[in-house]
């Protein structure tokens, strides 16, 4: 029992690491990772929605009729996204402004809907929570890592602390839109290299 929960939890951390292995939920991955702070903030918001929606979907899995399940999942997800939106507005207003429309867009993040459809709709609540937590943490770490690469190269800082001294010429390409695609592509390539061995 405990073993299978652990298995559902850890698969999100490497074997099915969301943005890289499943290639789901790419929009926030590309859009908000100019800095570590933004990336992790976005990751945590998504994790919260993922865990709550997974839990509720799993609880209601025998009640929701199969034909309208997608619509039901979306309503459940949208409810939690609204909660996150209001919470962030109240407690971390600056981060909320920086992440902008990507907070409401968690609703259409295919990772969240994908987990409801592929996992939570078929499994018991405690397994669904483990799955949501693992996927969420994997997602947060990926966003943080991508944010770290882009922030350190593009602005020469990590979490706002300068890294390279005053002579550093920022590689601004990295924090701009094209850099996001190239950087994610190269990181995916590296993951493939490591995974192969």
């Amino acid at each position: 029992m405990a073993q299978s929960i652990a298995k559902e939890f850890t698969k999100g951390l490497w074997a099915e690491l969301p943005p890289f292995k499943l290639v789901l939920g790419l929009c926030p991955v590309l859009a908000v990772t100019q800095s570590v702070e933004n990336g992790i903030g976005m990751g945590l918001a998504t994790t919260f929605v993922l865990i709550c929606s997974n839990f509720l979907v799993s609880l209601l899995r025998n009640i929701i009729p199969a034909k309208v399940r997608i619509a039901c999942y979306i309503v459940i997800i949208a409810t939690f996204v609204t909660i996150v939106e209001l919470l962030m507005q109240a407690y971390v207003y600056e981060l909320f402004l920086k992440l902008g429309i990507f907070i409401p867009l968690i609703v259409v993040n295919c990772l969240v809907l994908g987990r409801s459809e592929a996992f939570a709709g078929k499994n018991a609540p405690h397994m669904a929570i483990a799955d949501g937590l693992g996927m969420g943490i994997g997602f947060t770490l990926s966003l943080g890592a991508l944010g770290a690469v882009r922030e350190s190269l593009g602005a020469g800082t990590i979490l706002g602390t300068p890294l390279f001294g005053p002579d550093f010429q920022p590689f601004t390409f990295m924090v701009q839109a094209p850099g996001a695609f190239v950087c994610l592509g190269l990181m995916l390539c590296m993951m493939n290299l490591i995974g192969k061995k």
Binding site: P178, G185, L186, N192
Partner: peptide, 18 residues
């Protein structure tokens, strides 16, 4: 091999974005 599919796709998208 490691660059295949999505990985190279993303780099290509980066160049179009540029």
């Amino acid at each position: 091999q490691p660059l295949q599919d999505t990985s190279l796709g993303l780099v290509t998208a980066g160049i179009i974005a540029l």
